[in-house]
């Protein structure tokens, strides 16, 4: 509902909007600035900004001296793996529900969503015990499975709302033109479904990357992703602020970039198509 404003009001609203946005973003900005300071400069009181001594060493240190690359790789494997596995299972389901809906399809979708209402703590103990018996504790495979199941309802819902928008008439038209099933899938459906699948994938990689319950409960060291690593970074007491900030910056940067790319699709995905 954007409307024209007088120049003076426009200046005031612009200033106000920018101030609010900068305040909201400031903690991230401050963390990034801290990650480039020396440890002494990072904890100096009063806080240093222009007088700070800057360095790139924190990033090099974190990357070289801890097991950081392993945590990073674990995050990639778990987030991408659980998302791809979820897509493989969800695409046929969402497809069938969107194009061959039955009487119970709506109820089924609601039931799937309701599984998200189940508190994770309620299933934590059995899952831990089952995982212990199967030898899945502290394995990437175990986390891939759990995060896939956790996000499966969201993946199905998102895909369903995207598939729903592909007009059925297009299929009929293609069929009238003599397209076989294979041609139909390759030339008509796939190009139309791809954008929806891509945004579903992005959003779920973000959700899985940032997951911080199961990753903490089900891992110790071997399979721990970044979220578990940062959570257990022992109280630094001002000694490792710069390094902690560098580790944090590297942990959120990939997702921040992915997120900024996908922000147009984000609202729709996160509200299961209820707000577009």
């Amino acid at each position: 509902m954007a409307r024209a404003l007088s120049p003076r009001r426009k200046l005031i609203t612009t200033l106000a909007a920018w101030s609010v946005a900068l305040i909201i973003f400031f903690p991230v900005l401050w963390m990034i600035l801290t990650s480039f300071k020396t440890e002494a400069s990072a904890v100096a009181m009063p806080p240093q900004f222009l007088s700070a001594s800057w360095t790139l060493e924190n990033y090099a240190d974190v990357w070289a001296r801890s097991d950081y690359p392993r945590f990073f790789l674990n995050s990639v494997v778990i987030a991408v793996g659980s998302t791809l596995l979820g897509l493989v299972i969800a695409i046929p389901s969402a497809w069938a529900m969107a194009f061959v809906p039955g009487r119970k399809t709506k109820d089924l979708l609601m039931w799937m969503l309701s599984t998200k209402m189940m508190p994770a703590v309620a299933v934590m103990i059995p899952l831990y015990l089952i995982f212990q018996r199967l030898g899945l504790i502290d394995t990437k495979l175990g986390l891939v499975l759990v995060l896939m199941l956790m996000n499966l309802p969201i993946i199905i819902w998102m895909l369903y709302t995207y598939f729903k928008e592909i007009p059925g008439e297009i299929l009929e038209a293609a069929r009238m033109d003599g397209a076989g099933l294979w041609n139909e899938i390759v030339y008509v459906l796939t190009p139309m479904a791809l954008p929806g699948i891509a945004s579903t994938m992005l959003l779920n990689i973000i959700l899985a990357w940032n997951e911080a319950f199961w990753t903490i409960v089900l891992t110790t060291t071997k399979a721990a992703p970044l979220s578990a690593f940062i959570a257990s970074f022992s109280a630094p007491q001002g000694l490792f602020y710069a390094k902690l900030s560098a580790a944090s910056a590297m942990a959120i940067l990939p997702i921040l970039i992915l997120g900024w790319f996908s922000q147009k699709q984000l609202v729709r995905g996160l509200t299961f198509g209820a707000v577009k």
């Binding site: 609010v20 946005a21 909201i24 973003f25 903690p27 991230v28 963390m31 973000i206 990357w209 940032n210 911080a212 970044l226 979220s227 578990a228 940062i230 959570a231 944090s248 942990a251 959120i252 997702i255 921040l256 992915l258 997120g259 900024w260 922000q263 984000l266």
Partner: peptide
């Protein structure tokens, strides 16, 4: 404005 949403809870 959207940035904090992408910051993982422990960070």
């Amino acid at each position: 404005v959207i940035a904090p949403f992408f910051v993982m809870p422990p960070v």
